[in-house]
Amino acid sequence: MSSKQGGKAKPLKQPKAEKKDYDEDDLANIQKKKEEEKALKELRAKASQKGAFGGAGLKKSGKK
């Protein structure tokens, strides 16, 4: 009665992915994407620090 059926089954190991050979155009595109993502991250960090856009928002004059 000592079978190994209870509990979680171990996941099967997947074969390692082969390294791809990139040419100059592919490498340039990858580098460009990384730079864009980095710039977006910085902009998000700045936006989160400032809070609301423009400060007070719309102002009402009170006149009709």
Rank of each mutant, 00 (worst) to 15 (best):
E37M: 06
K32H: 11
Q5E: 12
K8H: 01
L12T: 10
D21Y: 11
E18M: 00
E35T: 05
R44C: 08
K46S: 06
D25V: 11
Q31K: 14
A52Q: 10
G54T: 09
A17R: 10
K59W: 01
N29C: 10
K4E: 09
S48C: 00
A17E: 05
G55R: 05
K50I: 07
A9K: 15
K33F: 02
A47D: 09
P15M: 00
I30V: 14
K34N: 03
K19D: 07
L40K: 14
G62P: 00
G51P: 09
K60F: 15
A52C: 02
K16H: 09
L40Q: 13
A52F: 02
A9R: 13
L12G: 12
S48L: 14
R44Y: 07
E36I: 00
N29A: 13
G54Y: 13
L27C: 03
M1W: 02
K20S: 02
K63H: 05
F53L: 12
K20R: 11
K33R: 13
K41M: 02
G62R: 00
K60W: 13
P15K: 07
K63T: 11
K19R: 14
A47Q: 01
G7D: 05
K20F: 11
Q31G: 04
E36Q: 03
K16E: 12
E18A: 15
Q14M: 08
A39G: 11
G6T: 05
K41V: 10
K50P: 06
L43I: 10
Q14D: 07
K64R: 15
S3V: 06
S3G: 13
A9C: 10
E36K: 12
A39I: 01
E36A: 09
G62C: 10
D26I: 03
K8M: 00
E18F: 02
D25T: 11
G6V: 07
D26L: 07
Y22T: 11
E37L: 06
G55W: 06
K4H: 12
K50A: 09
D23H: 09
K10R: 10
Q14I: 11
L58Q: 09
G7M: 04
K41S: 04
K63I: 12
E18S: 10
E24G: 00
G55C: 02
K33Y: 01
Y22M: 03
S2A: 15
S61I: 08
E42R: 06
R44K: 13
G51H: 12
